[in-house]
Simulated scan of single mutants.
Amino acid sequence: MEVLKVSSKSSPNSVAGAIAGVIRDYGCVEVQAVGAGATNQALKSVAVARGYLAPMGVDIICIPAFTSIEIDGAERTAMKLLVEIR
């Protein structure tokens, strides 16, 4: 599964385009975000991606979960958004 990493400085429109592209190619994508700002941008991106895909008759769902990732040798908790076609 393709993994997209989002930061608090990520552009929601750019991430949404990436989400839509991966959904068109593979049917599912995992979006990871660490921190409140990054999670905010990730959720906005999923909403925008839904708008990008709707005219093509593609409806997506988002399943939130937590995951552990390693950043600079330290283990951190990240928000994982599993986005897939309904």
Rank of each mutant, 00 (worst) to 15 (best):
V15F: 03
I63Y: 06
A74D: 09
V58P: 05
K44I: 13
G57V: 13
M79D: 01
F66R: 06
S68D: 11
A65Q: 14
V58Y: 04
Q41C: 00
E70F: 11
G37A: 06
Q41D: 07
Y52A: 04
G73I: 11
S45T: 01
C62D: 15
G27W: 08
A36E: 03
S7P: 01
L53P: 04
K5W: 10
I19C: 02
A16N: 11
A54H: 12
Y26D: 07
T39D: 03
R76I: 15
V34S: 01
S14I: 02
V29G: 05
V22W: 00
N40S: 13
Q41L: 00
E84D: 10
A38T: 09
I69W: 04
S14P: 00
M79V: 14
E75L: 14
D72K: 00
A42I: 01
G17D: 05
G21H: 06
Q32M: 15
R86K: 13
N13P: 05
G73L: 15
L53Y: 04
V15S: 11
Y26P: 01
L43F: 08
V15A: 05
V34E: 01
V22C: 02
G21T: 07
D59T: 10
A42G: 04
I85F: 07
L82I: 08
A54I: 15
E75T: 12
A16T: 02
R50H: 13
P55N: 05
I60R: 08
G21V: 01
V31F: 02
C28I: 07
D25Y: 04
I60M: 04
A78I: 14
G37Q: 09
A18C: 06
E75W: 15
I61H: 15
A42E: 07
V34N: 01
A42M: 03
V31P: 02
S45H: 08
A33T: 06
R76N: 05
E70Y: 09
I85C: 09
M79G: 02
G73Q: 11
G27L: 03
L4E: 05
Q32V: 15
C28Q: 13
A65C: 06
A38W: 03
I71G: 10
E84L: 08
E75P: 06
S7E: 05
A78T: 07
C62G: 10
I23E: 12
A49N: 12
E75I: 14
A49W: 06
A20Q: 12
L53C: 01
V31K: 01
V22F: 01
Y26G: 08
A20L: 00
K44H: 13
Y26N: 09
I60V: 11
A42T: 04
P64D: 11
C28W: 08
G21C: 00
L4F: 13
A54T: 12
M1S: 08
F66E: 08
G57D: 03
